[in-house]
């Protein structure tokens, strides 16, 4: 039993290639060290799965929000300058 707050995101993509690209871009940046948020990403088929864990719900919210901002940017970039061949 853990007293951590948890958030799980499942983001579906049209293909595994696109999910892999999003994973490649978004897995590079680490969560800020002092924030106390743990984040892990993986790709299953066409789905990007993101798991967040944090002691404080406030820092969890900040991390998820910020992740969504970058995710949106990746999606828009793929839409405008993709799709991958």
């Amino acid at each position: 039993m853990t007293d951590n707050n948890i958030a799980d995101l499942n983001i579906p993509f049209p293909s595994k290639t696109e999910a892999d690209i999003a994973y490649g871009t978004l897995s590079v940046d680490q969560e800020p060290k002092r924030g106390g948020v743990k984040r892990s990403l993986r790709v299953e088929d066409c789905i990007l799965k993101v798991h967040f864990e944090a002691k404080e719900i406030r820092t969890l919210r900040v991390s998820v929000n910020s992740f969504m901002d970058y995710l949106l940017l990746v999606l828009q970039t793929i839409q405008k300058f993709g799709p991958p061949s």
Partner: peptide, 16 residues
């Protein structure tokens, strides 16, 4: 944050 926002686009197009 501004550095990362710009790098995210660069990484994505480099893969595409």
């Amino acid at each position: 944050a501004p550095l990362i926002s710009t790098a995210v686009v660069a990484r994505t197009v480099a893969q595409l």
